[in-house]
C-alpha cells in the first residue's frame, strides 16, 4: 500500500478536519467582523473613558500571542468555573482576537476618511447612528477590502493553533495521520493543499468585490 493510498483510506479524518476548519474560520470571521464594527462604533460615539478602555483592550489583545488566548480560555477558565468544549473555546478566542484586529484596520481607514462627508451628513440632520451605518461604515468597508481579505487569511491560518487545544481541524487531522502511519510528508502536503483551497477562495471573492468597487470608482453601499 502506497502512502497516498493510506491518505485516501483515511480521507474521512481530513474531511471532518476540513469541515471543522472551515466552520471555525467562517463563524470566527463573521463574529470578529461584527465585533470589529461594534468596537469602531464605540470609538466613534463613546465617551472619552469608553474610548480609552476600548483602545487599551485592543492593544492588550493585539500584543497577546493567539495561542496564549486559546490556552487561557480552554485551560484557564475552568479554574474560574467556566467550562466549554474545545471548539467553542477556539471559536471565541478566534473571534475576540481577530475582532480587535478588524477594529484596528477599520480605525486606521476611518482616520483617513475625508471629514467633509461626515460634516455633510451632520448638516443634513443625520443622527449619530445613521451617520455611522449609512456613511462611515460603507466607506470604511469599501476602502479596507484588501486589508480585510488579508486579515481573513491570517484568521484562517490561526485556526491551526487550535489543534493544540484538541480541536479536530485540518492540522490535527494531518498530525494524527502522520503519527499513526509515519507519513508526515504526504499528510502535511494534503493539509497545505486544504488551507490553500480556502485561501484561494478568499482571494477570489475579494478580487471580484474589489473589481466591482473600482469599476464604479468606489461603489454602492
Amino acid at each position: 500500500m502506497t502512502e497516498w493510498e493510506i491518505i485516501w483510506q483515511q480521507r474521512e479524518i481530513f474531511i471532518s478536519g476540513f469541515g471543522n476548519t472551515f466552520a471555525l474560520f467562517f463563524a470566527g470571521s463573521i463574529a470578529s467582523f461584527i465585533l470589529g464594527v461594534t468596537l469602531l462604533y464605540t470609538l466613534e460615539n463613546g465617551s472619552k473613558g469608553v474610548k480609552g478602555s476600548v483602545i487599551l483592550v485592543i492593544n492588550m489583545m493585539r500584543t497577546l500571542p493567539f495561542l496564549i488566548l486559546a490556552y487561557l480560555l480552554y485551560y484557564g477558565l475552568p479554574q474560574a468555573g467556566i467550562r466549554m468544549d474545545a471548539f467553542t473555546a477556539g471559536l471565541i478566542s478566534l473571534s475576540l482576537y481577530h475582532g480587535t484586529y478588524f477594529c484596528e484596520i477599520f480605525r486606521g481607514i476611518r482616520k483617513g476618511l475625508d471629514s467633509g462627508q461626515m460634516e455633510a451628513a451632520q448638516a443634513c440632520g443625520f443622527s449619530r447612528f445613521k451617520t455611522f451605518t449609512r456613511i462611515i461604515i460603507p466607506n470604511v468597508l469599501l476602502r479596507s477590502l484588501p486589508l480585510i481579505a488579508n486579515q481573513l487569511i491570517i484568521c484562517l491560518k490561526d485556526t491551526a493553533f487550535l489543534c493544540i487545544i484538541t480541536v479536530g481541524e485540518i492540522t490535527a487531522a494531518a498530525n494524527s495521520i502522520q503519527s499513526t502511519y509515519f507519513i508526515p510528508l504526504n499528510a502535511f502536503i494534503v493539509a497545505i493543499a486544504l488551507y490553500w483551497i480556502i485561501s484561494i477562495a478568499i482571494e477570489q471573492v475579494s478580487k471580484i468585490t474589489l473589481n466591482k468597487v473600482q469599476d464604479r470608482g468606489l461603489s454602492h453601499a
Partner: peptide, 17 residues
Amino acid sequence: RERIGMVFQSFNLWPHL
C-alpha cells in the same frame, strides 16, 4: 439642522452613493 441646508467648498458628496 434638517431645516438648514449647507453647501460646502469641497462638495462633500458621499462617494459610495
